[in-house]
Nucleic acid binder design. Sequence first.
DNA 1: GTACTATATAGGAGTAAATCCTATTTGTCA
DNA 2: TGACAAATAGGATTTACTCCTATATAGTAC
Lengths: 155, 155
Amino acid sequence: MIKENYTINSAELEKKTEWFIGKCREKGLKVTPQRLAIYRELMKTDEHPSAEMMYNKLRQDYPGISLDTVNRTLITLHEMGAANIVEGSGDSKRYDCNMDEHQHFKCIKCKKIYDFHHKPFDDIKLPPNINKKFKILRKTVYLEGICDICLEENE
Amino acid sequence: MIKENYTINSAELEKKTEWFIGKCREKGLKVTPQRLAIYRELMKTDEHPSAEMMYNKLRQDYPGISLDTVNRTLITLHEMGAANIVEGSGDSKRYDCNMDEHQHFKCIKCKKIYDFHHKPFDDIKLPPNINKKFKILRKTVYLEGICDICLEENE
DNA sequence: GTACTATATAGGAGTAAATCCTATTTGTCA
DNA sequence: TGACAAATAGGATTTACTCCTATATAGTAC
């Protein structure tokens, strides 16, 4: 259940590459060597790299690639639905001193954070192997999307 | 269930301040005017501020306060269990192109991110008022703690 | 294949957020 | 009330992007 030492086989890599090319075409995005390289490199790892980590890896095979391209492309991958940004990362740190059980919704447009409380979320049970392997200090249900105000403004 | 326009009354503010002072003493941390001011200011807002936002607010009453102190103190609050860092914020962006349903555990010490998959977490149901008010684009269960490797190193 | 055009890239400059450094100050406790 | 470890201010530095602009290139139209 905990996934480790993930390695993608080359058949899967090619299949996903085809899917990615289709997705680019569908969205009217050009299939550039850099985009392909970044997507393929991200598929080969399970270490949830940062842009900097990706840049250092990619430079070995593409010495001319720029950090800006890596940054831009990773965000493009995210926007086109080919990658995610891991929860505890991104944007600047935001603080909250309400220590009562509650959950957060974050608007990805205006960056506003809304509290809500749904009791069943306080009690979700972790699989036992997680508790055995790691010391869990925090367990949250986290939502992202567009808030009502931003939704209205878009029309 | 969605909490809005939160204002703390002064009785509650004083009660929490007392609790905070006790917590500082318990942890051997000095009760400085800056710490108190930062904690009290954070309690008065529900906007989940960044350090910069806090700094700008606090400067009105404490013209000499430094941004570094605000940053350090907010992290101290977090470490002593008096504040949280909201999930979609902090550290540099980390990417993941595995779009199959899965969850993340992040080690707060080594920053490594582990995938795991617990099927019941794929199906958690949101309260209907959330879906009505916001457009939900992402719904995740997110864990933080110390990984097995860092736990071992600490002994 | 050739030409066109909108998109993407490289590389450097600029910006935002956070951290580091060091002299000074200040809670805390003996 | 004095000693000292801890905390702060303020500036320097680092990190993590983001912006700018000239050049290059993928996709398309001929």
